[in-house]
Design a protein around this nucleic acid. Structure first.
Lengths: 203, 203, 203, 203
DNA sequence: ATCTAACCGAGACGGTACGTCACGTCTTACA
DNA sequence: TGTAAGACGTGACGTACCGTCTCGGTTAGAT
């Protein structure tokens, strides 16, 4: 995931040897990512504009367009690290506990965390713009962390299906609920969901 | 569902007694709904504008704003009937067959049907705009049809959990996959998913 | 001259019969012309921008572009009346006095009057933009008033050449001096110039 | 004239003693002047930009700003030699022939020559920018050559007035016509104009 | 048979973001 | 120190759409 996204910032600077002309300003890059983070909380995604980002960051508009093509692209680069960090749960001895803990974290992430808000906004934008869909699909923010947790319980869940289906069965219901209703399931429901999966996977 | 949505069109005409002045033009209403359908296919949701809808429909801008507040609202009214129709599967004797058939229909609806495209656009917009989120939540386009199918198999699935969780477990993985990757699962994966649920629900 | 320019405002409103839609706002038109007048004095032609005009006039940018294509066009419409008014001198009994009075007025107009400043800016812009050149050529702000004065003395100047050459001989030196040096000739020089012309024309 | 303008290029290199560090690149200077000449013909003055000049010349932007402050200044330096050369007519025995020949050359220069185009652009810019006005006034491109011709006929035109007025009377009408209408007078009109002047001057 | 109220289309209005362009300055590596 | 390259912050460009407004006209029930 890191590698996937760090392309955006390294593609130019790492161009084989040294570059000509003034190098890209790391200061501006950071200012933009922080500005986008702040603005998403302050005004929401719908009111998030390239102009607004540039002004908040104290950066020229051209600089934005030079390095990013879409506000979604900026947002993705801004949150990718946060998502990875916020969705990392410590391994628990019991498989059911392990999975349930992750789903609680995922639910709270989607509903309350700024990064979760950004993630939902990105998935939303992906429905309108194919470019963003590819971006979101490639970054696969949730899938990466979910797969990590599933891999941990694989020893006691030998019948777990292919990564795609397993992941979707695991996180799909929680994400679906958050995206369509803006609500999350109580802890007991999450446990019940985990048991449903483990029952079949632990044959 | 119908009633929920038909409010938007009936609120005025059915206002207790008869109204004064020129009545709402049914012709314009239909023209708008058709225009929105056409434009979604032609230009996509991102390029769908109130101005564009008005011009395509041969209708004044004011007329749009008089009866709808958002392009999402128009879109919802335009597709609600289609969704209901496209997601209605005939009951099958075997529960697993019944559920799998619905999921296949749902998958194809989300990925290929114009109404499915509109549905995804609405869920997407819901992530940006709380008003739309309530609209989508209230209409509950998918939940209604999914619940109907689940109710059919309830006799052989007595352990099925609460409607919300059961529905989310059922359709969540398929919707999640469509929204985040734009792809669908093969039929076999859908059958496997159905078996996972029925295994636990049929205690 | 009036007719030439009034085209800009009447071309649309006078379109045969009555028009559809909201009619053009005369209030906005006036606000724009006043704003352009003020700004020329305040910031000069080089710093005169469409954006600045719109903001000063309290008018949308689109409104500017809807009715004018160039800031030069706005400026021309704004000053055409002033020019006509400022360059009108009362007829004097002596031909030499009559012509000299006009040239003094013209010199002061070019060097000190706001409208004269605008005229020089327009002629300047005409050197860069063929569209403006046609505009200036067609309006022929100076030529019109100069020709009127020449016509008055024609009875005592039967050898006056064609209108174009006569006018250019008459006002050319004064305009040339103003455009290339920003200065004007003393009254005595203007009298000498008039005598030079009348000597030959009064054969 | 030459001296006046060559200040712009010699100010640094000829600074009393020898300079430290890398000397100014004569190669870059020539490239810039040629680029400005070419671009004026290709794209016109309005589309002539510092950026464009730098790219066409294969020169850094900083280099432009180091040695010139304005595109007008570059243009002036680029054409000054051409103007002098193109407006030099051989002396003719008859005064009227001499003056008329110069006016024909001046007319054609203004209307068809690239350097004439540049001159008109400079005079145009001078109306917008006081800095350029001083530049044009000081260089006095036309006045210098015109005065030279007038001096030649002075022996037979003893009543010729002060240099400024005489020059303005001589070239003013032709320049006025070119600047305001983009047209020139036929040869006969130019002869008539010369006769008007000589009639009075040869008393 | 008017009158009146609410609708209708068209389209101009003041705003504001869009993505691009040129400005003049700066920061690199190289000569 | 001069140079080419090129990124930087600034700000105007002309366009598009926003949601509102003002026209002339239409279509009903109420007078």
């Amino acid at each position: 995931m890191r590698d996937t996204v760090s392309r955006y910032s390294s593609a130019v600077t790492a161009d084989e040897t040294t570059r000509m002309g003034r190098p890209r300003s790391e200061r501006s890059r950071r200012a933009v990512l922080h500005a986008v983070d702040d603005l998403l909380v302050d005004v929401g995604y719908a009111a998030l504009t390239m102009k607004g980002i540039a002004e908040r960051a104290g950066v020229g508009r051209q600089t934005l367009y030079r390095w990013w093509t879409t506000k979604a692209e900026i947002l993705l680069e801004a949150i990718v690290d946060d998502v990875e960090e916020e969705l990392t749960t410590p391994a628990l001895p019991d498989a059911a506990d392990d999975l349930a803990a992750y789903l609680r974290e995922l639910r709270d992430f989607l509903l309350t965390s700024p990064a979760g808000h950004a993630y939902r906004a990105l998935v939303g934008e992906a429905q309108h713009d194919p470019t963003v869909r590819d971006l979101v699909h490639t970054a696969d923010l949730l899938g990466t962390s979910a797969r990590a947790v599933l891999d941990r319980v694989r020893p006691v869940a030998p019948a777990m299906p292919s990564a795609d289906l397993g992941t979707a069965q695991f996180v799909g219901p929680v994400v679906y609920q958050a995206l369509t209703t803006g609500t999350g399931f109580p802890d007991d429901d999450l446990r019940e969901h985990v048991r449903t999966l483990l029952d079949r996977w632990s044959t």
